[in-house]
Design a protein around this nucleic acid. Structure first.
Lengths: 150, 150
DNA sequence: AATTATAGTTAGCTATGCTAACTATATTAA
DNA sequence: TTAATATAGTTAGCATAGCTAACTATAATT
């Protein structure tokens, strides 16, 4: 006989497994859309944070993207080479580098986001209104979980 | 004034955006659990397919994992070096290579999956029963969408 | 002034994605 | 039956992206 607690744990693990699998496969599909954009996924993701959240330092961006500073340093170098981002030395603290999306960067990011999202959205057309509502709610729940997450 | 159709499109795109973002961040967290396993994510994912779906060729595995054959060839080479997978020439067709998970591979894969899922599941503890039910339903819906997806 | 702490970069490793070009085996056509 | 073509996989070479360790430069503390 299984106790109620064990059943709850199993239910959570089954759910975790399905969420994990869905996330992997969803991103593999979406990545193919990015392929047409001449900028790699990590760059687009970092650029997206910059455009939506505004100016920040390398360290802040690394932390937001959950990568180590050297990784972000190189991602930013790529974005800078492509003239999508500008570095500005912080006047108050000479160690810091403030990052700004250029107009070109903002435009590309919007286009890229547009493409991924349009693609994803087109795949959601098969869903009923009720199913959409459930996905919508769950996206909100997940967002909350991910934020409070350690 | 926006028509109803435009509102529906916008709703789908907002949802797609949030799902995309959630998937990215969820996987970044989970990947850190993999770091303790001495095998990289792509290898664990391929191994997982092999263990659960059984013997298959390099090409089939590449297709299942949505990568090109050279990529899978190299992933398998790594798994073979680590003695997690064995190659067997196909007797009927000498070009084909059948792949088998070794017992060690099957064991590692179960452990890895266990670790990721246990971790994810532990983060779901903060949710109410109702929220869990919504995530559960949405995982099912997503699974279905991803399958029928082109 | 000397020490310590912080922000970022550089160098070097591994892994993962790709395409192009190759080898080896099977299949089809002349 | 040989020649041409197709298929399965590998190799080579490129770019990106993750890491740690070690470095430079600036700021803060003692």
């Amino acid at each position: 006989m299984q106790g109620q607690k064990q059943q709850q744990i199993k239910a959570r693990e089954d759910l975790a497994d399905r969420m994990h699998s869905a996330a992997i496969h969803l991103l593999r599909r979406v990545r193919k859309q990015d392929a047409t954009m001449a900028q790699a996924p990590a760059r687009l993701s970092a650029l997206s944070v910059l455009v939506f959240a505004g100016t920040m330092t390398i360290g802040e961006l690394a932390s937001a993207e959950q990568v180590k500073p050297p990784t972000m340093s190189r991602i930013v170098a790529g974005l800078e080479r492509a003239r999508l981002v500008k570095r500005v030395r912080d006047a108050m603290d000479g160690r810091r580098v403030q990052l700004l999306a250029t107009p070109k960067g903002a435009k590309l990011m919007r286009q890229g986001r547009r493409r991924r999202i349009t693609y994803l959205a087109s795949q959601l057309k098969m869903l009923t209104r009720d199913e959409m509502a459930i996905l919508d709610e769950s996206a909100g729940i997940l967002q909350r979980v991910l934020q409070s997450w350690t």
